[in-house]
């Protein structure tokens, strides 16, 4: 999954999608995930990093990340997975 090239995310958690003109607010853990996506981390790498850092069960984290990815797709922030 890749974040679209021109999507801008600031430290305040403000995300602007220039292709749609929409703005979003992203919470700190969401920002971390988007940054990791920018660095082309895989889903598994993201999960491993967050499991290390946060007090959370793997099942919960996986479910929440899937949901977050779903929202990123819905809002057109990421490029759809290539088949």
């Amino acid at each position: 999954m890749k974040v679209k090239k021109n999507v801008a995310l600031s430290d305040s958690g403000f995300l602007f999608n220039p292709s749609s003109g929409e703005s979003y607010s992203v919470n700190p853990i969401g920002q971390e995930i988007i940054k990791m996506l920018n660095e082309e981390s895989s889903e598994e790498e993201i999960i491993a990093t967050l499991l290390e850092k946060y007090n959370v069960e793997r099942d919960t984290l996986e479910k929440d990340i899937r949901d977050f990815f779903g929202m990123l797709e819905l809002y057109g922030v990421v490029k759809p997975e290539e088949a």
Binding site: S25, V26, G30, K53, N55, V56, L61, F68, L72
Partner: peptide
């Protein structure tokens, strides 16, 4: 110690009446 976990969130901003204040 591990940090307190919060689910990742992305919420649209300019849909009218939203501000956290």
């Amino acid at each position: 110690a591990k940090l307190l976990y919060e689910r990742p969130l992305i919420t649209p901003l300019n849909t009218g009446m939203t501000n956290k204040f």
